[in-house]
Design a protein around this nucleic acid. Structure first.
Lengths: 156, 156
DNA sequence: AGCCGATCGTCAGTGCTGCTGACCATCAGC
DNA sequence: GCTGATGGTCAGCAGCACTGACGATCGGCT
């Protein structure tokens, strides 16, 4: 197989390219974050929760683009690691305010550094201007509309 | 940067962008191919099988970047729809040569047209040169190294 | 006050994917 | 004809996200 020229022109397929680029990045990211005991997914949750305004589980889920039922497990995991905690909202007792603990905030800081470094490394295969262009382009494709606000999206 | 919406700067995360760009494309692709009774995944399998050299299941799996156990179900589906058939290799009777049927070849032709149209539509949100640049850039990221051999990858 | 529809968090169940590990048939070398 | 490797198959498991249901709570209405 090693030949070279991709038997079929698989590498011309947008779907294939997006999926595999994501896969490869996910691996690099997981590898880099593993020593911290976390992963990209959890890190994204932490980042959202770090918002200055306190967020309910559902609000956080909305910002992350995950289902509220999915959010349950996400918060469970964070809570089990003492990175966040649920607090019943005094204003609306149906809501769980999810708040980062100090440990959560600390981890977030360290993990974000790692993430940035990992992204840079991953993109290092590209000529510098291409990397910036890629991000801008992906932003358009991922959020649906051009410079639009992006409104609400989907997954992590 | 971007200022605007996005509570946390989720749209600055490479992982998020790649995942969602892929998700959005997968949706568009599925929608477009549904009338043909197929999807992007199956189409990729068909394309690989259309190779001029006859491929065993495992060889095809390798080219697609899927596990050989996964390939079983893929070929099952194709066979159930009479798009392909397994033929015991005369040279090595452990191997199943997977061969496209006429129906398979026909579908492939029609579906590839649809795919190309769908990709163009999806990328239409971008200035023309950006679209080309994106593909080249993704090719680098998805296959690992620049013009490298690409060797073997992973998923569909 | 009491009721009722809507909302939030939770959980059980389901579907989809992809993997591991085992199995059998077959092959290649001795 | 053994023996070890290889190809296809299958069962089982794990991750992920969704649906549908439930209890608790809220808010508006009467």
């Amino acid at each position: 197989m090693t030949s070279d020229a991709r038997p079929e022109q698989l590498t011309d397929r947008l779907g294939y390219l997006l999926k595999h680029a994501h896969l490869r990045y996910a691996e690099a990211s997981a590898r880099a974050l593993a020593p911290l005991g976390t992963d990209g997914r959890e890190l994204a949750v932490l980042a959202v929760l770090a918002s200055d305004v306190p967020l309910s589980q559902q609000e956080a889920a909305g910002r992350l683009g995950v289902d509220r039922t999915t959010m349950v497990a996400l918060v469970d995991a964070l809570e089990a690691k003492s990175l966040a905690e649920r607090v019943r909202s005094p204003a609306d007792r149906r809501k769980n305010i999810v708040r980062l603990t100090d440990a959560g905030r600390q981890l977030l800081g360290r993990a974000e550094d790692v993430r940035l470094r990992t992204e840079r490394e991953f993109l290092a295969a590209l000529p510098a201007p291409d990397a910036d262009a890629l991000l801008a382009t992906l932003r358009v494709l991922a959020t649906g509309a051009a410079g639009a606000t992006g409104a609400d999206d989907r997954n992590s």
